[in-house]
């Protein structure tokens, strides 16, 4: 393998980050989405960004299984999306339920961008709903 070859795709980190862009509706403030996405990108952290969790759930997209796999109490899947109850049951509806205690949801409909970013990057911030 040459020195120019890439080495990793976010493996072995202390938990995964998932960002939902809620692309097909205007219910999440555009500014909040923008700030969260900008700051996530600038943080250098590995993350997964999806256009719309609702759409993936309706399609029962197998990628949801990949996204929720590996979450545990010590390395939670940290999700920037909307209401925790909605996110939890969207995963369930797709046949890929999130394990209890293995995820936390930061709500871009209610929280500020800085609170959401602090939460998903596991910095000090508002306690998240699980």
């Amino acid at each position: 393998m040459s020195d120019r070859e890439p080495r990793t795709e976010g493996r072995g980190d202390s938990g995964r980050i998932l960002y939902c862009h809620c692309a097909y509706a205007k219910v999440v403030p555009v500014e909040t989405k923008r700030e969260v996405l900008e700051q996530l990108g600038a943080s250098g952290a590995a993350f997964e960004a999806v256009p719309d969790l609702c759409e993936m759930s309706a399609r029962k997209d197998p990628a949801l299984a990949r996204l929720c796999a590996g979450g545990s109490e010590s390395a939670k899947l940290r999700i920037a999306a909307c209401y925790p109850r909605a996110v939890r049951w969207l995963f369930h509806a797709a046949g890929t339920p999130l394990a209890k205690g293995a995820f936390e949801v930061h709500n871009m409909r209610e929280q500020s961008a800085s609170e959401v970013v602090a939460g998903v990057l596991n910095q000090e911030g508002e306690p998240a709903a699980t």
Binding site: M1, D3, E5, P6, R7, T8, E9, G10, R11, D13, H21, A23, R34, L37, L40, G41, G44, A45, A46, F47, E48, A49, V50, P51, D52, A63
Partner: peptide, 25 residues
């Protein structure tokens, strides 16, 4: 990122390689 998500593509932003001698993944 924004353009891809708006167009409906899922995007993975991988972590940077930890070191040169790290086993490739």
């Amino acid at each position: 990122l924004h353009e891809l998500l708006e167009a409906g593509y899922a995007v993975t932003r991988p972590a940077p390689a930890p070191s040169l001698d790290h086993e490739a993944a």
